[in-house]
Every structure is written in structure tokens, then in C-alpha cells.
Design a protein around this nucleic acid. Structure first.
Lengths: 222, 222
DNA sequence: GACGCAGGATTGTTCAACAATGTTTGGTGA
DNA sequence: TCACCAAACATTGTTGAACAATCCTGCGTC
């Protein structure tokens, strides 16, 4: 299990490179929420200076993937109930807005249906990670309807935090299977030009998802 | 013109401190868009190491207050036409959404009217900066209706970028006077519970503002 | 005037050191 | 035994200097 880095990016953006490595490891669940990221050991194992690692940390802290406690160190973010509520506050605002006021092109709609197909395939194959990825891609596509890169970035951050929530949970709930069909329904509404209906249904959908997640989370904490 | 720092924060978050200093200077227009932030001179004048200044830079770059060009340095962000469009893509999504689906308490509505009073006072006094501040506070209050800190942060960033746009313009247009009354109208609608109407009017409002800003910007570039 | 090429300046990264804070350990007294 | 306190230890925050890589400048050549 070598955690070494073979390819040292010659002389460019080492700090960004390190940040992306850590991001990937955290997203993959290799670095579990709440665990400490020691400057000493990480700088050693990644083969970079403590100083540049530090810079990568500030980047990740800015993305709230990582929590920095002064003189204590940085820790992989461990989102709890309040964070989940915040996540859904964001989603409940921008996703329905994107649906309501977006004018999706047929290409965008086709792409969304492609994603749904992928999700169905993953569901039938019983692959939870693939389903999670597809679901994530779908909601990213929804936000992309706004055409805004900033909103897309925000959604990315939020979805990354969602992944952390799942990683922090002892038992993963069957969270995605149920919503595949609702996504399909959403695209159908959009294709019919029924944006208001689509937005309303999406809001219900998000409410239900939040409630389910919160229930599971509180049952977990007990 | 002393740009020195008298109070050296003893041993706490020097990097955050430096970041906030730079943020303030940029917001105040003391550091104009496009100007270069030399590591050497800044670290000297701020009395911090080049290394910690660098960390502050990555923070500010994450907030896109500052643009980093590899091996060239960091520059105060100079938003142009495309950035303005992006700003309004964001605003046109989250502000009407906040208005449409937010359930403002009477305290929140009172606070918004307070802000409008301040804006009117500034208008009558002819103080453009105060008007800009009040306008900014108003739109922040709108987004605050979502209850989401992340959205509020995003709005902060966007409004900071707006300030940069104004700083980058040769001549400032009379941008705020006209919209004070529209803000007042918005609050009236909200108080009456006419959220849909309020959202629709706000979208028109934002469209008009964007168009005016873009026209002025393009006239400026010519 | 265009091109190419040293030379200088600036950024990217690393290292070693120290100050400040946190954590742990061990002892003391009740 | 337990609570409390203080000294060792470890870790983070910050600094300064050093070097490599890249960019910019000015000069000479054609």
C-alpha cells in the first residue's frame, strides 16, 4: 500500500497538486471524517515540504473539506446534523431555481437522461458507488442549467460534503435507489415545459431526502 | 503614506489577518483591479514573511478576489463583461429563489426597511458610497432569507466582485439611486405575502441592472 | 525594425529554526 | 483513589534564507 508519489510535477503548482490528491483521498473515503491530518507525517509521506502542504491545507479549508483548529491541526470535515441542514438549505434554493428559470436545451435534457440510464444500470447491477456518482452527476447537471460556474462550484462543494456525510455514517442507507425514478420524472416534466411543476416536485423531493438522511443520522448517533 | 502595520497579532492567525487586510484594501479601492501584488514589497510593507503572505494569497485566490498567474504573480481581480454576466447569473438564481421560497419574519422585513431608510438618507445626502453599502446590505438581507450561510457567503463574494467592477470603471454610473424604490416595492410585496410577484419583479430588476451595467461597461471599454 | 540572447528580477518550493500553544505524564496532597 | 498542578514533550504557526524555474528587460546583431 504505497502512499508515495512517483511523479513529482516538475515545477508547477505543487500545492494545487497536493490539494487535489488530498481531495481525492478524502472523497474516496481513504481519509475518514474527523481524522487528523498531521503536517509532519503527511509532508513526509507525500514528499513535499511542510510549508507547501500547509498551503494546500488553506485551499482545502477554503473549500470546507477540511477543518482547521488553531494550534491543534487540520481534520477531515465531519459534517453532522447542522451541516446536513445547511446542505439542504442550499440545494433547496438553487436546484429548484435552476429548474424553474432554466431553459434546458434538448442536448442538456438528453444528457440528463443519459445519466439516468447510467443510474438505472448501476441500480440493476447493485453498485452503490456508481449510483451515488450518477445521482451526483444528475444534480450537477440540474444546477448547470443556470449556466453559472460559481453555482456549479458551490454545488460541487455541497455534493462533496454529502459524500463525507455518507462516509461518516456507520451504515449506508439505501439512499439512491428510490430517487432514480424521481429524477426521470423531473426530466419528463422539463421536456414538457412544465417547469413550475418540476420545481415544486423537486422541492418536495429534497425535503424528503433531507428528512430521511436526518432520521438515519440521528438513529446513527444514538 | 505609511502602509505599515503597528499591531502585530501576537501569535494567532497572522495569515488570516493579512488576508483580511488585503481584502479590506481591495474593497476600499486602495488596491485597484489589475494591479500587481508583489510578494517582496508587500511582505516588507506588511511586516510578514513572504511565506505567510503567500498563504494569505491562496486564501484570497480561493475567494477569487485575486487572480494568480503561475510564475507571474498575483493581481487584483479585474472583472470584465464575462464576469459581470456570471455575477448576474448567480444573482438571478439565488435572489429570486430566496424571495420566492423564503418565509421572511417581521423582524427580517423590518430590518430590510431599515436598510432602505438608510439608502434613502444616503441618496438625499448624495453619498454614493453609503448608497452602495446600503444596496449591498439589502441584497445580502434578501439572500439571508434562505437561512443558508453558504449562500450568504457566495453572495458576499459576488457583491465584492461587483465592487471591483465599479472600481474598474472609469466613470461610475448613477447605479443605485434608481433602485432604492424598487427595493422598497419588493419589501412591500413580501409583507403582503405576494412572493411570486416579488420574485418576478426582482428578476426583471436584475435583468435591467445587468443590462445597464453591461452597456456602461462596453461604452467604457470603447 | 525584427530576432535572439545573456542578465536580472520574481515566483515556486524547500529547509531549518524558533516561538507559541496543546497534550501528556508524573507527582503531590487531600 | 482521586483531583489538581506543573514540567517535559509534541505539534502547529511563523520566519528567514536558500535555490531552481520561469518570466521580463535591455542590448547587440543582422
Amino acid at each position: 500500500m504505497s502512499t508515495e508519489v512517483e511523479q513529482q510535477a516538475e515545477h508547477a503548482h505543487t500545492t494545487a497538486w497536493i490539494a487535489s490528491v488530498l481531495r481525492a483521498r478524502i472523497a474516496a473515503g481513504q481519509l475518514t471524517p474527523g481524522s487528523k491530518l498531521s503536517e509532519q507525517s503527511l509532508s513526509a509521506s507525500l514528499g513535499v515540504s511542510r510549508n507547501t502542504l500547509r498551503q494546500a491545507f488553506t485551499t482545502l479549508a477554503g473549500e470546507s473539506i477540511v477543518t482547521r483548529i488553531p494550534n491543534r491541526g487540520v481534520f477531515v470535515a465531519a459534517p453532522g446534523v447542522e451541516e446536513v441542514r445547511e446542505i439542504y438549505r442550499v440545494r433547496r434554493t438553487i436546484e429548484p431555481a435552476a429548474v424553474l428559470w432554466g431553459r434546458p436545451s434538448t442536448e442538456e435534457l438528453d444528457a440528463m437522461e443519459d445519466i439516468i440510464r447510467r443510474a438505472r444500470a448501476a441500480r440493476d447491477a447493485g453498485s452503490v458507488p456508481d449510483m451515488a456518482n450518477a445521482n451526483q452527476a444528475f444534480h450537477e447537471a440540474v444546477v448547470a442549467l443556470t449556466g453559472s460556474g460559481s453555482l456549479r462550484e458551490l454545488m460541487d462543494r455541497v455534493l462533496a460534503e454529502m459524500r463525507l456525510v455518507f462516509h461518516a455514517m456507520a451504515s449506508a442507507p439505501d439512499f439512491h435507489t428510490y430517487y432514480v425514478d424521481r429524477n426521470a420524472q423531473l426530466v419528463k416534466r422539463l421536456r414538457a415545459g412544465e417547469n413550475e411543476l418540476a420545481a415544486a416536485e423537486l422541492r418536495e423531493y429534497l425535503d424528503a431526502a433531507e428528512a430521511e438522511l436526518l432520521a438515519h443520522l440521528e438513529g446513527d448517533a444514538r
